[in-house]
């Protein structure tokens, strides 16, 4: 059972999500190879990940923007190669992984196992369903496995310590179906939400986008935190959708998660309940968020948060 992991890259470097996917792949019990579509530097970096036997580097410009139309045939080709193919393909359940993996699965006629939380056996996995309200154990009957990995559910493999060989690979190249126009990146000095050590999140109680910024930003600045939000706050237009923490947004598990004015709908809890320390500030003592919080403060957030910011 040899597993191929799709490396998630961020600004040309190996993103931490890759390291969690490598850990999941290693739990399948066989050698782990990593596919890097992009710069040589990232391939060299991936070769140092502990536990990785080989890095496949696809340097063709057609793969640089991770267009699924181009990357999926490359992966499917590597998976199906006679004699040297792979038994499993794993991608982190990032927007890139979620875009590419099902396309690979369909090309291989495999039913994908999405968003796994644990490896229970060679073909058996747990995964969240119904927005995290239930956990299903599923067993695949397909010859090959295609999996996306919930990165917060697996420890990160050590980024240093490995010495994998790097092999150049090529595939069909540009499928001619799609082109990358641009990325409007979120301009921020803050840590990225999914990899941040501390997150301050705001909910609907923040009233409007100005108030959200006035209350949440100083606390986040003080803590060096990323800023998140509940779906209610996003729906109400206080912040953009990429701030959304929850089942339909981002899944996070920081050291410290501060939920401000968030009631704690199940869909939000599904996105943050693996955080190490959860702090909830809410004026409603019956808010469900208090049932998962390590430290709860029943208070008016408009008084408590500025006070907290001043005293930290």
């Amino acid at each position: 059972m040899t597993a191929l992991v799709l490396a998630e890259l961020s600004d040309g470097a190996v993103a931490p999500a890759t390291l969690s996917a490598v850990t999941a792949a290693a739990q399948l019990g066989g050698p782990v190879h990593v596919l890097v579509a992009g710069a040589q530097g990232a391939a060299d970096e991936a070769a140092k990940i502990a536990g990785v036997e080989k890095v496949l580097h696809a340097g063709d410009a057609a793969y640089a923007d991770m267009l699924a139309e181009n990357v999926a045939p490359l992966v499917a080709g590597l998976m199906a190669k006679d004699g040297v193919g792979y038994d499993a393909f794993l991608a982190p359940a990032t927007t890139t992984g979620k875009n590419v993996a099902p396309r690979v699965a369909a090309l291989l006629d495999v039913m994908q196992v999405s968003d796994i939380l644990s490896v229970e056996g060679p073909k058996s996995f747990t995964r969240p369903i119904y927005a995290g309200n239930a956990i299903a154990t599923v067993e695949s009957s397909d010859a090959k496995l295609v999996i996306t990995v919930r990165t917060t559910a697996f420890d990160k493999a050590a980024a240093e310590g490995g010495s994998a060989s790097v092999e150049a690979v090529s595939g069909p190249g540009d499928a001619g179906l799609s082109s990358f126009v641009g990325l409007e990146a979120v301009k921020s000095d803050r840590p990225e939400l999914t990899s941040a050590g501390t997150i301050v999140s705001g909910g609907r109680a923040l009233k409007d986008s100005e108030t959200f910024a006035e209350v949440i930003t100083p606390l986040a600045d003080k803590l060096g935190a990323a800023i998140g939000a509940s779906r209610a706050a996003v729906d109400a237009g206080y912040v953009p959708n990429d701030y959304q923490v929850g089942q339909t947004g981002k899944i996070v598990a920081p050291e410290l998660y501060v939920a401000v004015g968030i009631s704690g709908a199940i869909q939000h809890l599904a996105g943050m309940k693996d955080s190490k320390v959860i702090v909830a500030i809410n004026k409603d003592p019956d808010a469900p968020i208090f049932q998962v919080a390590d430290l709860g403060l029943v208070a008016d957030l408009f008084e408590a948060v500025p006070e907290m910011t001043a005293k930290l």
Binding site: P128, A134, I135, V138, A293, G296, L297
Partner: peptide, 25 residues
Amino acid sequence: RLKTTHVGEPPVRQAGEIVPDVDTL
């Protein structure tokens, strides 16, 4: 192609404590 062998409740996180004020927090 996938057989669901079990569907269970998600793990429950224990509620912690309610602190009285910002200083304690």
